[in-house]
Design a protein around this nucleic acid. Sequence first.
DNA 1: AGTCTACTAAACAGTC
DNA 2: TGACTGTTTAGTAGAC
Length: 635
Amino acid sequence: MMVESATETIRTTPSNQNGVSSLSSQSDGGGREGGSNGDINGEISPLDLLHLQQQQALQAARQFILQQATGLNSPSSNEVKQSPVQVPVSMAMMTPQMITPQQMQQILSPPQLQALLQQQQALMLQQQQQLGNKQLAFQQQLIQMQQLQQQHILNLQRQGLVNLQPGQGAVPIQSLQQAMCPTDLQQLWKDVACVQSTEEAMKHEGLDLTTNSSNTTSYSASKVSPQIPHHPLPNGLNSVHTPKRDSSTHEEHTASHPLYGHGECKWPGCEALCEDMGQFIKHLNSEHALDDRSTAQCRVQMQVVQQLEIQLAKESERLQAMMTHLHMRPSEPKPFNQPLNLASSVSLSKRESEGFPDGLPHPPTSAATPITPMRQGPSVISSSSLHGVGPIRRRNSDKFCTPIASELAQNCEFYKNADVRPPFTYASLIRHAILEAPDRQLTLNEIYNWFTRMFAYFRRNTATWKNAVRHNLSLHKCFVRVENVKGAVWTVDEVEYQKRRPPKMTGSPTLVKNMITGLGFGSLNASYQAALVESSLGLLNSPTLMNNSTGASLNMLHVCHDDVSSTVEQVNSNGSCSPGLSPQQYGHHVHVKEEPAEMEEDSRPVSLMATVTQNLCMPGDERDMDEELPTEELE
DNA sequence: AGTCTACTAAACAGTC
DNA sequence: TGACTGTTTAGTAGAC
């Protein structure tokens, strides 16, 4: 299929048809050249190549003559026929149609042919330059990205976060591609790089007519679609494979293509239905080839990535400041395993409780400030995290307790504009929507509106997610339907919400692994925060530590997850406070729902981080309390 | 392997 | 009658 696709594209390249094929049909035997021409990546004899290139030279000469002729009044063709062996000046007086390849060969000496070919090449290069400039800029960006990725992978390797065993290259690389690299971008990068190398080859090889067929191919194909034809699949998944692949390997890929899912193309803004992978691949090659539109979309996606990188830089800088303040190896800023190091180093250092100065966890003043190595290699963005849909990423959010309020606050515009599924559960989103409302109650329709307003992702597939919203509202006891004068509104019962089983997470290596393989930046950072938060819960739930831990712990929690923050709220109120308005407060009809059996809250596993936090008993500074909570909730 | 959770889909009933 | 709302059930998948 891939080979077929490649050859098909090459074969149908317009310039190719206009050039060589037309000449071939007029030359001796035609069929042979046509066959060779259409099978450029197959076995071609040097003789064929030479012949092809000669034909091209003839065509070039014809074009040359045409150009010359346009500037002159064409005399009668008879004159030309009478003097077929004149110098180019008289040749220019011929109409191109009058010249057969045979005549051309007779007319032009080899140097002339070369000169003509050179001229045509110059024209080609000129044409390519327009496209090439764009490609160059694009390529530079892509190269930059890849360098960042590689650098970051190296960092991870050094720190043991990525288990890249020597000799196991294939599997880890593949998993890394899945987890860390926007494979589509990579493939595009390769496409562009390949084109450039071809162009370079052309430049260096000059007019050598005996060079290989790549010259011919790019030469003839460069006019219209110079890149894609060389690459069967712009998906990145097959980048390490040969074009001919067996079916089993193919099936592996059909199972997971970052741009394909649920029978439709996941290219941003596309949603074209494709029954199977084959159809999808065809669609991808035809609709999302490397043209201006795709490039622009890719740029947008790159901006998304860059935005996330900036956010990561911010958070890492904040972490760095925190660690610096806490005297935790301030000289060793480490990109992604800091959470673990934090745990170990803090528990080892037994930090003194020396107050929490104002300057501690303040966000960096500038996102562009390069502080940690992270800025140079943070591309831990999986395709699924950016364009993830459904099952693949849906659990990440919950598992890592992404702080919905801070995440939304920081990436509000991103989620509004990017067709990216938010890394939050429906329940947490609904809760957030309701709590965000002035009176903390929303009608179903208002919830819908909030979803569509806040997330571009929810502007499509409305039936699905609306059903999910209704389902969640009905299913979870924490959502209470209240009938007031305006009709039915939905409220949040925070006590019930807090009773929901908290996500389990420990400081185990699993955390690290999942951080690397399954998350985008926001969630990644959130995972660290969640680790702190999660571990802090044990502390916060401990009566002995409640008295003096609120300040420090809550400072550490200032970007905590809604789930966890809810628990904090509860704890802050000694378990008696329901931050959201209790449904009973509304004094209207309240439907009490029964949720499945709840687990004991104490059954939360205590992570390594709990020990950390227990050592961080610092006086209070509630300045950075959970940002998603109104102040009255914290009293 | 079993369990839990979240998501998706769908059926159904009531209301407007 | 159809759209909307709300409830419920079932199946699936990922994570633990």
